[in-house]
Simulated scan of single mutants.
Amino acid sequence: MNIQLSGHHVDITDGIRDAVSQRFAKIENHYPDISDLSMALTVERHAQSVEATTQYKGATVAVHAEEQDLYAAIAEAARKMDAALAKRKGAEASHRHTRSVV
Rank of each mutant, 00 (worst) to 15 (best):
L41A: 14
A52L: 08
A72M: 06
S35G: 09
F24H: 02
V43S: 14
Y71V: 05
Q68D: 15
A59V: 06
S35V: 15
H64P: 04
L41C: 11
V50C: 15
S49G: 11
A75P: 03
A19E: 13
R79E: 15
V43I: 14
M39G: 02
S49F: 05
K26V: 03
S21I: 08
H46K: 10
Y56I: 14
H64C: 07
Q55E: 13
R45F: 06
A25H: 01
A75M: 08
A77Y: 02
A65I: 02
Q22Y: 12
P32M: 11
S21V: 10
V43Q: 12
Q22I: 15
L41R: 08
G58I: 04
H46D: 14
Y31A: 09
E44H: 06
Y56H: 14
E67D: 10
K26I: 00
I34K: 05
Y71W: 01
Q55C: 10
Q22V: 15
I34P: 08
S38C: 03
L37G: 03
A62V: 09
A73Y: 07
Y31P: 04
F24K: 04
T42K: 14
A73L: 11
K57G: 13
T42R: 14
A73K: 04
K26Y: 01
T42A: 12
V43Y: 03
E28L: 00
D33Y: 05
